[in-house]
Amino acid sequence: MQSRPKASVIISTYNQPQWLALVLHSYNIQTESNFELIIADDGSDDRTKAVIDAFKTYSKLNVLHVWQKDEGFQKTKILNKAIVASHSEYLIFTDGDCIAREDFVETHLKLKRPHCALSGGYFKLSETVSQSITKDVIDTQKCFDKQWLLVKGQSKTFKLNKLTKSKVKANLLNTLTPTKATFDGMNVSCFKSDILAVNGFDERMQYGGEDREVGERMMNNGIKFLQVRYSTICVHLHHQRPYKNEEAEKLNLKIRKETKKNKTTYTKFGIKT
C-alpha cells in the first residue's frame, strides 16, 4: 500500500503548454520526491493534456489532471476541485508559469507550522530570459543563478536577492521585508484542513485578488501567515494577461471589503454549496 504523500502541489494552468512543460519538469528534480502533482486546469485545449501525458511517461510522480470546461476565467472553481482531489494533509499552491527551485517542496515542508500558512513570492523573468529557459537550464538550476540571468539580459535590481541560496540571508530578508504575508496563489502553502475550514475559494470571484480573499478568511479564522518569500524560490515566466477584467475586479474588491468588514471566516460560494 502506497503511503500518503507529504504534500500535494496544486498547479493552476490555462492554455500555456510551453510554460507548463518546463514547470512540470522542475518538479521532477525536487530534493523531496514524496509529493503528488495536481494540475488544476481551467479549460485548456488538448495541447495541455499532451504535455501532461508526455511528462507522465518519464516522471515517477503521481500526477492528477483536474480539468473543467472553458467558461471564462473560473480559477477559483478548478482550485476547489483540485483541493477535493488531493490526497495529502498539506497543500502547496503555485501557477503553471512558475518554475520551482529544486528545494521548493522540501523548504515548504520544513517551514510548515500548525495553524500557519506560508506566504512565498516569485522572481519575474524578462521576456527575453523566459525564452532562454529549457529543461537543461532547469536541470542545472541556471535559471536561479544571478550571474547567468544577468548575462542573458535580466535587469540588475534588488529583487535578484529573491534568489539567494543563503538561509541566513533569506531569514533576515523575510523578517525585514515590508511586504505583508498573504495568500498569493503562485507560491503559498497551508494545511488542507485549514482551507477546508473556510470552505475553500469563493467561486463568485474571477481574476484579481481571488486568492487573497481566501487567505483573508483564513486569517479571520485564526491562521497566521508567515513570510517565506526569500526561502521558497520560484521564477515566473513572462506572459500577457488577456483575462484582466475591470468588472470582475470591482466585484472581487466588493467581496474582499465585506470579508474584511464582517470578519468573514466561511463562504457559502465555495467547496460546499
Rank of each mutant, 00 (worst) to 15 (best):
219 M>I: 12
97 D>Q: 04
113 R>T: 10
82 A>R: 03
177 T>S: 15
249 E>R: 15
144 F>W: 10
64 L>M: 06
161 N>C: 14
7 A>I: 08
174 N>H: 04
220 N>S: 09
211 D>N: 04
268 K>H: 15
50 A>M: 14
136 D>N: 14
108 H>P: 01
217 R>I: 05
44 S>R: 08
163 L>R: 13
58 Y>D: 06
235 V>N: 03
230 Y>I: 00
109 L>T: 02
92 I>W: 06
178 P>S: 03
104 F>Y: 15
122 Y>K: 04
134 T>H: 04
104 F>W: 09
79 L>V: 09
13 T>S: 15
263 K>H: 15
13 T>D: 14
262 N>H: 12
9 V>G: 06
33 S>Y: 04
257 K>D: 12
181 A>N: 06
162 K>H: 12
238 H>P: 00
29 I>V: 14
128 T>F: 07
55 F>P: 05
141 Q>W: 00
22 L>W: 03
236 H>G: 08
92 I>E: 06
180 K>H: 09
242 P>Y: 11
53 D>H: 06
230 Y>P: 01
187 N>W: 10
273 T>W: 13
152 K>A: 14
262 N>V: 05
200 G>S: 05
69 K>Y: 12
24 L>Y: 05
254 K>I: 08
189 S>A: 12
239 H>Q: 15
106 E>V: 00
83 I>A: 02
38 I>N: 02
96 G>K: 08
125 L>Y: 09
